[in-house]
């Protein structure tokens, strides 16, 4: 059986999602009879324009050069998979999209902003090209990425759970931090996949895995308000790492407008 040709590409990001693979190099090596890495610069494979079966994309599109690069990449990839909050929802850097002029932030930080080629917006990959599979999380978990590679090597689309962190807490037997401790937990609207890490540590989930299925933003907003959070604090809970994910943008802006 021919090996699955895989590439890993970086756009605007922190490199953390590539660590899902780089922190598990022994497992990467065990994939060698089924998977061939064609491009993965951080691991030493440089061949960005080669056609591949599966391209994993980390990072958001935030420069004119990245707009062109993602379009070329789409032509070369049979299956395109986004990994992480940046590639899937624009990342925390998409907060500048909510400014009247996103480029104003560049001018505030650089003495010569004209030398910084940066769009006023940071968008998910899906804003520019069709995406076949989106793996959420800031960062993605190694298990998500390896399961996806294994499934795609077998020729099937991976299972991509969309249930909420609440479901994960119930499965793990965690005490509910919202009900028991009044913590402003985002678990009810956040996709599972992290292993309910924050509630397990007794802290409120901060929604780094993005929206789950059937987000009820209004109900959670009311619950957070009843805990004593002011509208801006509620808005910031939604407008954080996955601020540009539709249901979160909507809930966050609605909370902010209610001030």
């Amino acid at each position: 059986m021919a090996r699955l040709r895989v590439s890993v590409h970086k756009f605007s990001s922190c490199d953390g999602c590539q660590l899902a693979l780089l922190n598990r190099v022994e497992e990467v090596m065990r994939l060698a009879d089924r998977v061939a890495f064609v491009h993965f610069a951080e691991l030493g494979y440089v061949n960005p324009d080669a056609p591949v079966d599966v391209a994993f994309v980390e990072g958001s599109v935030s420069t004119p050069e990245e707009v062109m690069r993602i379009r070329e990449l789409r032509k070369n990839a049979r299956t395109l998979v986004t990994i992480g909050a940046c590639a899937t929802a624009g990342g925390i850097q998409a907060l500048r999209n909510l400014q009247a002029d996103g480029r104003a932030w560049v001018a505030a930080l650089y003495p010569s902003p004209e030398h910084v080629s940066l769009l006023g917006t940071s968008h998910a990959i899906s804003r520019y090209v069709a995406v076949d599979l989106e793996l959420w999380g800031c960062p993605v978990d190694s298990r998500q990425v390896f399961s996806a590679i294994q499934a795609l090597a077998l020729g099937v689309m991976p299972i991509n759970p969309r249930d909420s962190v609440c479901m994960a807490c119930k499965r793990e037997g965690n005490v509910c931090v919202l009900v028991a401790h009044g913590a402003p937990c985002m678990g009810p609207v956040t996709r599972s996949g992290c292993g309910a890490l924050c509630p397990r540590f007794g802290r409120a989930c901060y929604a780094c895995y993005g929206p789950s299925e059937q987000v009820n933003g209004l109900a959670l907003t009311q619950r957070l308000a009843s805990l004593g959070l002011d509208p801006d604090a509620i808005a910031r809970r939604f407008l954080s790492i996955n601020n540009a994910a539709g249901p979160f943008t909507e809930a966050g802006l609605r909370a902010r407008a209610s001030q």
Binding site: F11, S62, R96, L109, V116, S240
Partner: peptide
């Protein structure tokens, strides 16, 4: 591409800062 963290931190509560700046690297 710069992600302009110093600007996006403005207006955030001090309690959020450790989770936000982690995302730089």
């Amino acid at each position: 591409p710069p992600r302009l963290f110093e600007k996006l931190l403005e207006g955030r509560s001090f309690e959020e800062v450790p989770d936000i700046v982690a995302r730089i690297c």
